[in-house]
Amino acid sequence: MTSPASSSEVKYLIESSEGNTFDVSGAALRQSNTFNAMFLNIGADGPIPFTDYNEATLKKVFEYCEHSVNEENYSGPKHQDDLSKWDLNFFNEMDQKMFIDVINASNFLDIERLTSYCCERIARMLRGKNTQEMIKVITLPTAEELEAKQKVEEKKAAAAKKVAEKAAETAEKTETLEELPVQQLVQTTRNKLTRKYLSFSNE
């Protein structure tokens, strides 16, 4: 459901990860540099698949785009202080998960204004904080945790290496047995059985 993008009245169909479709105006969509690069000149045959993002996220993103259709062209980062009441409500009503989803979608769709406002919001969380204070506001493994994680991984790798070596050793033995002449094979098996019997008897 598409047509040349010159008219702002044109509606485009957007498809979400759930396979649902919904309308977005051409004017709103043109705030996405990704859309402009992919579909603006050639148009789209059928719904535009933004199937990496769910319907709620995409609707939220395009709600912002629809709202800012009449605003002047984006001219670089602005501070939260410059945001309107509507903008502030828009951000404040999102929970953390939705906020991250919106940043991801906005980043993919390359909507400069929305991405910038979101990033400024994140930067605010870190403003004026030193390293120790930052640890409290962001989920980021500390150097010590990473070191501990690395040690665990090293242990795991060492254990895996041992298992692999044992498997290789077993395979080698099996191979050796297969290569033995029949008489020797019989003798080897007998020895093994004897050892097994002895070990049982010792118990």
């Binding site: 980043n107 993919f108 994140i122 506001v137």
Partner: peptide, 8 residues
């Protein structure tokens, strides 16, 4: 805490 590393 905000999962900064989950961002692109």
């Amino acid at each position: 805490p905000f999962p900064l590393l989950r961002l692109p």
